[in-house]
Computed example of a mutant assay.
Amino acid sequence: MKTPPRLQPLLDEGLIDDVLYALMSGKEASVYVVRCGERICCAKVYKDAAQRSFKKAAQYQEGRKERSSRRARAMEKGSGYGRQQAEASWQSAEVDALFKLAAAGVRVPTPYGCYDGVLLMELVRDADGDVAPRLNDISLSAEQARRDHQTMMQAILRMLAAGLVHGDLSEFNVLQDPTGPVIIDLPQAVDAAANNNARWMLTRDVDNITAYYARFAPELAATRYADELWDLFESGNLDPNQTLTGVFSKTAAAVDLDAVLQEIQAASDEAAARRERQQHPSD
């Protein structure tokens, strides 16, 4: 195939040896299958901001820390340099997340490096050696759906324990290899502690994944993993190795009825006193 312009510098520098074919074009990147020596890899070519259709990017970038204060100031001002740095930050976020999650035991493609807006990483394969399918393209037995759903909930737990929320998780960005699900597409991953949108993003991630597996095992729709996960996170009791249950019951704090009645009485007395003052104003 004709070499895409963004991949030509990597060919020139010997980082890749051949571009085999285009795999897909998504909302934030195009992906190609390439050869690096004897290894077949993925090359993810990020689109620039003008082409990228990922919505509400600012919500995902909230809480991300820039090591360089100069870069951070430029990004805030929106200068040409700042926009360039914002793009670099968006791209490096996925590389950082992949390395961090792989170290935390989350199944993600192995990253090899990011060069001029091109991420080189492992090509996830199926049992026949072909490109692994997305969850959206396969059907599962009820038993496998229950097993893989539990695997995904534990993966989300490990992500959260590592301080990250995927932010855009669904059956369209999880691949299925012979061992099970592999999570992909992480440029929008958010800091669970620093991003004010982290909780609803986590809930949406869990709900999307649960809705998919519930197509094959309907009882999964009744689980409450998002509430369980966030409660553990907020309480500081998140252990990446614990087994989740999907059951959540937040016991309401016991109501002090006497205290409530006292407050009602005090408010009533104050209202009566106010009326008395209005009827008999002092001289």
Rank of each mutant, 00 (worst) to 15 (best):
R6D: 13
Q8T: 10
L10F: 05
L10H: 02
L15K: 11
I16K: 06
D17R: 15
D17N: 15
A22M: 15
L23A: 05
S25G: 09
Y32M: 08
C36T: 03
G37R: 15
C42P: 09
A43P: 08
A43Q: 03
K44S: 07
A49M: 04
E62G: 05
E62K: 04
R73I: 07
K77H: 13
K77R: 13
S79G: 09
S79P: 04
G82T: 00
Q85S: 09
Q91H: 10
A93D: 09
E94R: 06
D96Y: 13
A97N: 06
A103M: 02
R107P: 00
R107F: 03
V108N: 13
P109E: 15
T110W: 08
Y112V: 13
G113L: 06
M121C: 13
E122H: 14
D126W: 00
A127F: 07
R134V: 03
D137G: 04
S139E: 15
A142M: 00
R146Y: 05
R147L: 05
I156T: 09
A161V: 02
H166D: 09
E171D: 15
Q176K: 13
P178A: 08
P178D: 12
V182F: 11
I183C: 06
L186T: 00
Q188K: 08
Q188F: 05
D191E: 11
A192P: 11
A194Q: 07
N195G: 07
N195E: 03
A198R: 08
L202M: 14
D205K: 15
D207M: 12
Y212L: 02
A221F: 06
A221H: 04
Y225F: 14
Y225G: 07
E234A: 10
S235V: 03
N237Q: 09
G246Y: 07
F248C: 09
T251M: 07
A253I: 07
A254L: 09
V260A: 01
H280G: 10
H280R: 05
S282E: 11
